[in-house]
């Protein structure tokens, strides 16, 4: 739940602008978005982000993030 007086930043998520609480990491964003795919791939400002770095990668205003759900069928 959003807190009163909480500050927000605008980032681009999958080509769409979205306001999110300031100070979120990639991991926290996934929780915020209720992303349930444990294999989701993240590209941040054109760079691939390793899953092990999700918790320590912080989001800044104007960031462009892409969430890609990988495909494993054959």
């Amino acid at each position: 739940m959003d807190m009163p007086n909480q500050t927000f930043i605008e980032i681009i998520i999958n080509d769409l602008p979205e306001k999110i609480p300031a100070g979120l990491s990639v991991q926290a964003l996934l929780t915020h978005l209720e992303e349930r795919d444990p294999h989701v791939i993240i590209e941040l400002n054109g760079r691939y982000v390793y899953a092990k770095d999700y918790a320590t990668t912080l989001l800044n205003p104007g960031d462009q993030i892409e969430l890609i759900n990988p495909d494993f069928g054959g």
Binding site: D37, P38, H39, I41, Y48, Y50, A51, K52, P70, D71, F72, G73
Partner: peptide
Amino acid sequence: ECVFPDTGAPEPPPSGI
């Protein structure tokens, strides 16, 4: 494995195609 490290997460179920 650089892209899909083994985190112990379950396999996704078969999908439509």
